[in-house]
Simulated scan of single mutants.
Amino acid sequence: MSIHREIDIQFQGTPRTVCTHWIDGYVVDPGPESSVATLMAELGDEQPKAVLLTHIHLDHAGAAGALVERWPDLEVWVHRNGAPHVIDPSRLVASATRLYGDRMEELWGRIIPVAESNVRVLEDEGAAAGLRWAFTPGHASHHVSYLHEASGIAFAGDVAGVRIGDGPILPPTPPPDIDLEAWERSIALLRSWSPSAVAIAHFGTYTDVDRHLDVLGEELRRLADLARVSDDAAFQEAVHATYAGGAEEAAYQKAMPLDTLFGGLARYWKKRDTAGQT
Rank of each mutant, 00 (worst) to 15 (best):
P171C: 10
A127L: 05
P84H: 04
M104S: 02
G138L: 02
H148I: 11
P137L: 06
L180C: 04
I23E: 09
A64G: 12
A182R: 09
T136H: 08
A83P: 03
L226W: 02
R185T: 04
G31P: 01
E6T: 11
A266R: 13
I153G: 02
I164A: 14
C19A: 06
F235C: 11
H4A: 10
I111T: 13
D210W: 07
A255D: 01
I187L: 02
D29Q: 00
T54N: 15
E248L: 14
G263S: 13
V215L: 12
V51R: 01
Y268P: 00
P48S: 08
S34F: 03
A96R: 14
A224Y: 03
Q47W: 04
V93H: 05
R103G: 02
G246T: 13
R91E: 15
E69S: 11
H202R: 12
D8I: 03
R221I: 08
I7R: 00
V28E: 06
E149H: 11
T173M: 12
D166V: 12
L261F: 02
V162M: 08
I23L: 08
Y100R: 09
H79M: 10
V121R: 15
E184A: 04
K271N: 06
F11Y: 15
D214T: 13
W269P: 01
L122V: 04
G44F: 11
R185F: 04
F11Q: 01
P84Q: 08
V76F: 07
P175I: 01
F135S: 09
W77V: 05
A238D: 08
D24K: 02
L107M: 12
E184S: 03
V18M: 03
L261D: 01
E116G: 12
A156D: 06
W269G: 00
S196M: 08
A201G: 03
D231L: 05
V86T: 12
W269F: 03
L43V: 01
D214L: 09
D124H: 13
I87T: 11
Q253R: 15
A61W: 02
T205F: 04
E219F: 06
M104I: 04
